[in-house]
Design a binder for these strands. Structure first.
Length: 467
RNA sequence: GGCCCCAUCGUCUAGUGGUCUAGGACGCCGGCCUCUCACGCCGGUAACACGGGUUCGAACCCCGUUGGGGUCACCA
């Protein structure tokens, strides 16, 4: 029923950073929420700075996040004919003209304006010259000199710009290439984009674009300028603020849903709710709860949210996300059922998938390396008897269920007079090499009789050799 | 500097004139739980930038100040 069409227009001059991903997300969510369309457009008119590698990086990041587009990707570099055609239209209708002022001359005008009253703009020297096409000539837009242009912004409200503040900006460079403000408008018109959600660093471009829409006789889209994402020091996001690319978060073991949840919540709210599943976001997202002020990117909160998403996810759904990390550690983890059990025990103690993979190691290797401190503290001669006793008890068990295991431990406690804590720690070190791990019964059950007994006796041997 | 935007705990935010001695989340600090580490639970810390109005009554409306951000290209 809806005919909302949004778009995401990254320029391929580097990786996709979290700020850009957020505006992409807003557009995607809004399209999904309204049942509309989401268009991907690559803004690569700056041939010098655009690279194929960046394009691929952007695709990869979007794919990982699960943001799929319905139309495109369009490449502006392949649409020059269309831009030419629109320049022609403007020239023919008298809304654009050729200008032969040199960059130096224009720069001079700006300096003068800056010195005089603060208005740094082209003075319209060639406006009425009636110049035709030629070497070193640019095409400028003949902007209205008086009156005002109003931006009716869906998040910021009405913003009024005096036309006298704006100048006759360039539509087509002297080398024939179109400029940003122009191509954006032509693209948005020809692609049917009717809802533009973008960073508010674009507000000052908007009046120019609105004038272009009008000069071209096109309907205005809905504009929604969302506040920017800032770094901890409240300055614009940059590499010195730490990990900023979407791909980095992927590599650090974040779940795409967690990143999405965090990014959307940064600047948008739904009452007090902090945790959202992807579908909930689609269901609840709307333009009218986007905040007006800039937000600081907080890695701690993202990490906490990631932990929450890990906990909330069924083990089976975590498998595809965790497997690459396991593989990187040389763990094949082919048995899905086993992996599921492993994940279940690790979920509440893993804030990232990377942590989870590292914590899973002892489930997959038989060469347990004892942490030095752990061994010194817990693998001492006095636990030799309890350990051997436990082995005997365990050997007698057919069923390694938690209940049976508890019984076995209880009997060892009985005969030795030791508390569970005294026994559990040495066993934990014997089984995992570490002093921290999932519950002792859980890991014994998952590891299974054979491996548990092997590791226990190995620990006993270790103690004997030491003393 | 001109133009534009913004302003609630350290951070993300709820709040749309009275129910706010301002709520939630992250962080931080206590405690409980406990076989370790976590998880979980309970409690605490901490904010309406400032000054004027408007109103019987302002976090919410208006003006100003201050502070922060954006933008002023033949980049996008």
């Amino acid at each position: 029923m809806s005919n909302i069409i949004t778009r995401f227009p990254p320029s391929p001059t580097g990786y996709l950073h979290v700020g850009g991903a957020r505006t992409g997300l807003f557009n995607w969510l809004y399209a999904r929420h309204t049942g509309g369309k989401f268009v991907l457009r690559i803004e690569d008119t700056d041939v010098r700075r655009s690279t194929r590698a960046s394009v691929d990086a952007i695709f990869e990041a979007l794919e990982w996040m699960g943001i799929e587009w319905d139309d495109g990707p369009y490449f502006q570099s392949k649409r020059f004919d269309i831009y030419k055609e629109y320049v022609r239209k403007l020239l023919d209708s008298g809304r654009a003209y050729y200008c032969d002022c040199t960059p130096e001359q224009v720069e001079e005008m700006r300096k003068r304006g800056m010195a005089a009253g603060g208005k740094a703009k082209y003075d319209g020297a060639c406006r009425e010259k009636g110049l035709s096409a030629g070497e070193n000539r640019v095409v400028r837009f003949k902007a209205p000199l008086t009156g005002a242009t109003v931006l009716e912004d869906a998040v910021k409200g009405n913003i009024v710009f005096q036309n006298a503040e704006l100048d006759d900006f360039i539509l087509e460079r002297s080398d024939g290439a179109p400029t940003y403000n122009f191509v954006v408008v032509v693209d948005d018109i020809t692609m049917g984009i009717n809802t533009i959600i973008r960073g508010d660093d674009h507000v000052s471009n908007t009046p120019k674009q609105i004038q272009l829409y009008k000069a071209l006789g096109a309907d205005l889209p809905t504009f929604a300028h969302v506040p920017m994402v800032l770094g901890k020091d409240k300055a614009r996001l940059s590499k010195r603020h730490g990990a900023m690319s979407v791909t980095e978060y992927q590599k650090m073991g974040y779940l795409p849903d967690a990143l999405i949840n965090y990014l959307v919540r940064l600047g948008w709210s739904h009452g007090d709710q902090e945790f959202f599943h992807r579908n909930e976001l689609i269901e609840k997202f709307s333009l009218d709860h986007i905040g007006k002020s800039a937000g600081v990117f907080d890695p701690d909160k993202l990490l906490a949210l990631n932990a929450e998403h890990i906990q909330a996810a069924p083990a089976a759904s975590l498998i595809p996300h965790l497997t690459p990390f396991l593989k990187a550690m040389g763990i094949a983890a082919e048995d899905q059922e086993y992996l599921s059990k492993v994940i279940e025990t690790l979920k509440p103690r893993s804030k990232t998938l990377l942590e989870m993979a590292e914590a899973a190691l002892f489930y997959y290797t038989d060469e347990i390396v004892y942490e030095e401190k752990a061994a010194r503290k817990f693998l001492k001669p006095d636990v030799l008897d309890p350990l051997n006793l436990l082995v005997t008890q365990l050997e007698g068990l057919n069923d390694f269920s938690e209940k049976e295991l508890e019984g076995a431990f209880l009997r060892v406690m009985d005969t030795t007079g030791l508390k569970l804590g005294k026994i559990a720690q040495p066993v934990r070190v014997a089984l995992t090499g570490k002093t921290a791990s999932p519950g002792i019964f859980e890991i014994v059950e998952i590891l299974g009789k054979e491996r548990v007994i092997a590791r226990l006796t190995a620990a006993a041997r270790f103690i004997e050799e030491k003393s």
